[in-house]
Design a protein around this nucleic acid. Structure first.
Lengths: 248, 248
DNA sequence: CAGTGGTCTAGACCACACG
DNA sequence: GTGTGGTCTAGACCACTGA
């Protein structure tokens, strides 16, 4: 183990992932070394190994079986997009080898609508930066995304040449504000005409919609986003744990 | 702390939840005692307290802020359904105080379709038990659910008088098979006419669809389910973590 | 039975927020 | 500085699986 500053468990997780990909730890469907052995191998305690494995399990990369061992999951599930990890659409597409382009980017500063002010927990009418864009894959529009950010967090002038369209990537790249998590509401919606136009669909077409609030580590909401997805291009999944107390 | 056999952290989690509801620990939006204090209060180690808090955080009941403290989340988010925890729709509705009824239950044993066999990872044509039902709230249909279970796991004869309609609840209640987790694909779909009829909607209406595989602890898939939700009655959300390595 | 993952402890130090 | 949550360790015992 080398660097500091990034949690040991994170580093171990990456090491294990690399080991799986390189085939030096185990192959697809294969059995990983026991937690104790992994701990010795990486020179960390078993608790740290368990934290790393917990993260890998949550993103569907491994399967753990009590009394048996830890197995590598089938590769398909790793490639897909688990919703538990927040990732920009651009990055997700890139990871699954899909080439995307951005189109119709619209950036503007304006007062927040009442709904936006409520979702961002800022005073009504506060200045916000709005970034809307369409994502194309194979020349076809596949998603329409809108980010709304308080002007206190991001100004139009902050969007340099390198801006990819993703507010999330920009935050992560510049490290400011420090991010905590995102909370996404999941819904299905019929396309309003304005959105249908951007996605080259008829009005009323079925769309998957994510409505998310992005939280900074200090608890502020630093982004409110709406994402509309044309069915068939992205597959989102969630791993759902069994609640041991649900039958109490 | 009392009983054994159910993990300490689970018990502590329930205690904290009760303490929040009873107002003896903290009120909505209020600050909880520190982890050290909670540990002393319940007579467990800090690690156990942290495990309990992690579970509460994942279901959106609390918010943790480094260097500040742990807060009770606004009650609305507690009432909602975090997708990370697998729970039957019946139980979910019950938890948010929504009275539901089951209608049009259809139970049959038949050979698996090729698609079902693939999803269940059983031989094509294997016998499966299919349970379909409509969920009503306020006399209105709000969801249509189909469970498909290998006959080797569940037979029609196993569905007793107490059967609520939920295969998941039945599994949890009888403790067999021991369950691991569920993997749900999330999509939006226009209602086919057969489903539109059951939900009293026009054909092509927008529906949220969950397509899930339920895994037993031995890795078998013991249930393949399709769930169609009429927008507006249930709200699903996901908490998305920041991947610290995503900008590497 | 031996070996695995699951739970729990006690104690340590670090990183962060706030007065 | 003080107190919080975040990370990590070393060691213990339990519960499960399979030979």
């Amino acid at each position: 183990m080398v660097r500091r500053q990034t949690p040991l468990a994170q580093q171990v997780m990456q090491e294990i992932l690399s080991g799986i990909e390189a085939g030096t730890l185990a192959h697809e469907g294969g059995l990983l070394p026991s937690e104790t052995q992994l701990g010795e191998r990486f020179g960390v305690s078993r608790a740290t190994i368990r934290e790393a494995l917990a993260q890998l399990e949550q993103r569907g990369a491994i399967v753990r079986r009590h009394g048996v061992g830890t197995f590598v999951a089938s590769s398909s599930s790793v490639i897909e997009a688990g919703l538990e990890v927040l990732e920009s659409l651009e990055r997700m597409a890139q990871r699954i080898g899909l080439e995307t382009h951005m189109a119709d980017a619209q950036v503007e500063e304006r007062p927040a609508t009442p709904a936006e002010a409520g979702r961002l927990q800022v005073a009504p009418g506060s200045l916000v930066l709005s970034v809307a864009r369409t994502i194309l894959a194979d020349e076809r529009p596949v998603a329409y995304l809108v980010d709304v950010v308080p002007a206190s967090v991001l100004r139009q002038a902050d969007l340099g040449e390198a801006f990819t369209g993703s507010v999330l990537d920009l935050f992560l790249c510049r490290g400011e504000p420090p991010l905590s998590h995102s909370r996404a509401d999941i819904m299905a919606e019929a396309a309003a005409s304005s959105i249908a136009r951007k996605l080259h669909l008829r009005r009323g077409a079925t769309l998957l919609k994510l409505q998310a609030q992005l939280f900074a580590r200090d608890g502020r909401i630093v982004d409110y986003s709406l994402s509309y997805f044309v069915p068939g291009y992205f597959r989102f999944h969630v791993i759902r744990r069994i609640d041991q107390n649900s039958h109490a």
